[in-house]
């Protein structure tokens, strides 16, 4: 057995020796991780849908009724070469009228008599690659000759960005609180383990154990606790999400707009974050507890 294998074994033995305390600590860590996991999953879903909205958002540039076909082609070309424009679609007056009809569905009588006049102007629907370029693109489109007005749904876009930012900040805050609480809990448990091994530590110091030799078993104990908690929480949250996902209506998803992500796109993120957090709280928590016993 090498020294490291021995220290790992000591860490594992410590864990078993303090069985009930280990169990209750892991229970609390699991509970906090599961809460965090739920928010990670919700945020991932929010972010994904925000991305969808961002992509779908565009603006409408209206054209004067007097514009000839050549002028319309010129406008189209002028818009297409603007940097950041992803897609451009022409809506003529007929299509605009049809769109209006769908908006007034059930109250078509309101549009009666307007069939011949076609009062709605032709327009281009412009989509862009990156939401952040929206205002620059808007200014450039406005400068194109023949464009009468640009309707840009700033309110929607800003709301979407705000929601996404708030959700991200909230998760960051929650994650920080969770990290502190879990580190504190593990640190307390290890403190008890250190205390019950006080005699060993004292003897070790007299025999000539280095600080790292004394520290390692406790760090390993903390790391195992954190890692096990992470894996248990991962299994619970995975089962939970898969079961709930199976019962969710899939209308949104099939339309390509709002909808929940399948777990196959999420599990590795949840697992990765849990494992990192588990190891972090385990290692840092035990390092804090053992520190004062290493002096002298």
């Amino acid at each position: 057995m090498t020294t490291n294998t021995y220290l790992i074994k000591e860490g594992y033995d410590n864990l078993k020796k303090h069985g009930s305390k280990t169990f209750s600590t892991m229970l609390i860590i699991c509970a906090t991780m599961i809460v965090l996991g739920i928010f990670i999953i919700l945020l991932q879903n929010v972010n994904k849908n925000v991305e969808t909205v961002k992509k779908e958002q565009g603006f409408q540039a209206f054209i004067s009724d007097a514009a000839t076909e050549t002028e319309i082609d010129y406008i189209k070309d002028s818009i297409q070469i603007i940097q950041g424009v992803k897609d451009i679609k022409y809506i003529d007056k007929d299509m605009a009228f049809e769109d209006a009809k769908s908006v007034f569905s059930g109250q078509e009588y309101l549009l009666e008599g307007l069939q011949k006049v076609k009062p709605f102007p032709a327009s281009f629907v412009i989509k862009f690659n990156d939401i952040n370029d929206a205002s620059v693109i808007k200014t450039q489109v406005e400068k194109v000759e023949g464009i009468t007005k640009v309707k840009y749904n700033e309110a929607t876009i800003e709301a979407v960005i705000t929601i996404s930012n708030i959700a991200n900040i909230f998760l960051l805050g929650l994650g920080t609180v969770m990290l502190i609480v879990s580190t504190f809990i593990i640190s307390n448990t290890i403190k008890l383990a250190v205390y019950s091994n006080k005699r060993e530590i004292y003897i070790m110091r007299y025999i000539g154990a280095t600080n790292s030799f004394i520290r390692k078993p406790f760090i390993i104990e903390g790391a195992i606790m954190g890692l096990l908690s992470a894996l248990i929480s991962f299994v619970i949250i995975s089962i939970g999400y898969v079961v709930i996902y199976a019962r969710l209506p899939k209308v949104g998803t099939s339309l390509g707009i709002f909808g929940f992500m399948p777990y196959s796109q999420l599990w590795y993120q949840v697992l990765g974050i849990f494992v990192l957090i588990g190891l972090f709280v385990g290692i840092v928590g035990s390092a804090i507890s053992i520190r004062k016993y290493l002096k002298v």
Binding site: E200, I203, R205, I207, A209, T210
Partner: peptide
């Protein structure tokens, strides 16, 4: 401080109360 353990390895300590595990 970090070299103290190596000094202690050169000295075997026997205590009145044995200090056994």
């Amino acid at each position: 401080q970090k070299d103290i353990p190596y000094l202690r390895r050169k000295i075997g300590f026997v205590f009145q109360d044995f200090r056994l595990l």
